[in-house]
């Protein structure tokens, strides 16, 4: 804490009086702080992307990964590692981002018919392309040198441990940009939850809203996947929790989802770091360990509700 304040505010005594070793200083400022910030940003961004996708495809089981975006990012990153000029994290990030964008564009074009985006087709295209990309990734992984396999697995399983202050820039820009963009459309998204016709009759250009929100969610996912790798289930669980807490009105639900996402992933990262110390559990593994049972519980609960609470 002292160290963070010391970096922010010039002239704090403890920065120069020798009570802190340079090692402590760099451990916090260069490793811990960016790591925590990246975990928070990633959680917030994935939660927001998940909430947006669920609204535009009318399906509460949608999440960023269903679009095949993460699989596309995986192909990008793995290609870079395999063909690699060397293992630079910046290069991996950039190629993952490009892969994510290509995947999004492909899914988007496949899901389009007569100028309209059909939610069902979008999910199917995303799942199919996701499998294709995963297959390519797997092939690249087994056909490459053994030394590369570790970096590949590390990326695919997701981690925020490689965070630096520079690597935060892309997720910050994406989160702020998309955050403002969606805040202005929160009411329109509420109408979209009811249905396309209802939203149209309320004066909303449904197709344009769906397209722009989809692009926004893909950018957000691409930006964090490029930095943190494949972290699943955050985009699925957090919006549900937010809805349970404040209901489905996006004006309240989106901010809550963003905050809960940040808290959730920071906590997961803390556990990933400490549970099996000194070794580290990949973050993607931990979120899946928490996420999968939650998902199944949700499924059971929904069914119980529709039987018990039916009209």
């Amino acid at each position: 804490m002292k160290i963070i304040v010391g970096h922010m505010v010039p002239g704090m005594p403890w920065m120069s009086d020798g009570t802190l070793t340079p090692l402590q200083d760099s451990a916090v400022w260069q490793f811990r702080l960016p790591r925590i910030l990246l975990a928070a940003l990633t959680g917030a961004a994935l939660a927001l992307a998940g909430a947006l996708l669920q609204a535009v495809v009318h399906n509460s089981l949608a999440e960023p990964y269903i679009l095949g975006v993460s699989a596309g990012a995986g192909v990008g990153a793995v290609s870079f590692i395999v063909l690699g000029v060397g293992v630079s994290s910046l290069g991996i990030g950039a190629s993952a981002f490009v892969g994510a964008l290509i995947a999004t564009a492909a899914v988007y074009l496949l899901a389009r018919k007569n100028g309209r985006i059909a939610p069902q087709r979008l999910i199917l295209a995303g799942v199919a392309l996701g499998s294709l990309f995963s297959a390519i990734t797997s092939y690249l992984t087994i056909s490459t040198d053994a030394q590369n396999v570790f970096s590949i697995m590390f990326f695919l399983l997701g981690s925020v441990s490689a965070a630096t202050m520079q690597s935060l820039a892309l997720p910050v820009v994406a989160l702020v940009g998309v955050g403002i963009f969606t805040a202005l459309r929160a009411r329109a998204l509420n109408a979209l939850l009811v249905g396309d016709d209802a939203a149209s009759s309320l004066g909303i250009n449904v197709n344009r809203l769906r397209t722009t929100v989809l692009i926004a969610a893909a950018l957000l996912t691409g930006a964090v996947v490029a930095v943190s790798g494949g972290i699943g289930f955050v985009g699925l669980i957090i919006p549900h929790i937010a809805r349970i807490i404040v209901g489905s009105d996006h004006r309240r639900m989106l901010p809550v989802a963003v905050l809960s996402g940040a808290v959730f992933l920071t906590t997961c990262d803390l556990l990933a770091r400490t549970l099996a110390a000194p070794s580290e559990i990949p973050l993607g593994v931990l979120t899946a360990l928490v996420g999968a049972p939650f998902f199944l519980w949700l499924l059971r609960r929904d069914r119980a509700d529709s039987v018990g609470g039916g009209r």
């Binding site: 609204a55 009318h58 399906n59 509460s60 509420n190 939850l193 009811v194 249905g195 396309d196 016709d197 209802a198 149209s200 009759s201 809805r243 209901g247 489905s248 009105d249 529709s306």
Partner: peptide
């Protein structure tokens, strides 16, 4: 336009 649409997944 009064539609019959309702999405059970997102209750309000």
């Amino acid at each position: 336009f009064m539609t019959q649409e309702h999405n059970e997944e997102f209750d309000m």
